[in-house]
Design a protein around this nucleic acid. Structure first.
Lengths: 160, 160
DNA sequence: TAGTTTGATTGGTGTCGCGTACTAAAACCT
DNA sequence: AGGTTTTAGTACGCGACACCAATCAAACTA
């Protein structure tokens, strides 16, 4: 009733690839942060849980996965462990080292966040016709895997 | 010579829209963080400068733009001002309020980051054929503007 | 076995974001 | 006008997060 803006997005100019991707990345990250926040998780914590869903890495490997300093990992895992989301198991091979694993509680929490996040993203993507969504998915996959590829490694479940 | 991975990305499965977008968002954010970091800027600082490139908002408006609490803005601007990237000018209309503006140094810095960031993203996107890049740009724009649209506002230069 | 490297922790620094409390100026009443 | 209420911004304290440098014990190596 107020104005034409009730329904149609105002047929905006193309933002240009770089800006559009930048803004999109903020959109996605904000969505993630918001949803994770509802469960008192930071983005990093959420990533942590996400990684642990199908891996049981050492602290060191974790640092590698997350691109963080070892010292950052200690605190990160500490806090998660304090909340019972994660556990440290002494390695049987190397007495200095631990394997970090996700607990049931952690897994459950991660699952909830994942579901809500997926719903949210799906909703954001609704303005695109199905065919475009497919394309978008393929393109994003392409970019991401190419990047992973030429910065060295994996993406798969457990590299070594 | 080592393996087929020298050239071709391993023709990965589609990650699915949600995961692909999530990973893409991390890719973009990490790129931004890395580049900004080279100039001792955080992502938030960079966003701040970016906003100030074509605006001269009050603290309050700034908080709105960034989605941050006022109290966060004080510190943010403090630090930026301390580095001479930003200036506070007392408002002529409201004696409680300031207009925050970018300095030449700040603008220059922002520009450098923007350029390097653009180069970086362009590079990431190279694996896509030109036609796809166009499409991607349009789709991302579409999503972002639709989102901005239905969470209320702008995207334009200076709403009020 | 002595010396080096490695896995993880500790302590210190700085950014960031929040919530609360506070001051001063503006806006709002009657 | 005079009193009350909002509003703009700051101050302070807290915790998360990330880094670096230093440390320590365990593991490896010469």
């Amino acid at each position: 009733m107020t104005s034409p803006r009730d329904t149609a997005p105002p047929a905006t100019e193309d933002l240009g690839l770089v800006d559009a991707l930048a803004q999109l990345s903020f959109l996605v990250q904000n969505a993630l942060a918001e949803i994770a926040g509802e469960y008192d998780l930071s983005i990093t914590q959420t990533r942590l849980l996400g990684i642990l869903r199908d891996r049981e890495p050492t602290m060191n490997q974790l640092g590698h996965h997350l691109g963080l300093d070892k010292s950052s990992i200690t605190g990160l895992v500490d806090r998660a462990q304090r909340r019972g989301l994660v556990a440290r198991t002494p390695s049987t091979v190397d007495r200095r080292s631990f394997q970090v694993s996700i607990t049931d509680a952690g897994r459950q929490l991660a699952q909830q966040v994942a579901v809500r996040f997926a719903e949210r993203i799906e909703k954001c993507v609704e303005p695109l016709p199905e065919a475009d969504r497919k394309r978008l998915s393929r393109m994003a996959t392409r970019i991401v895997t190419a990047d992973a590829h030429d910065r060295g490694v994996d993406l798969r479940t457990d590299p070594r």
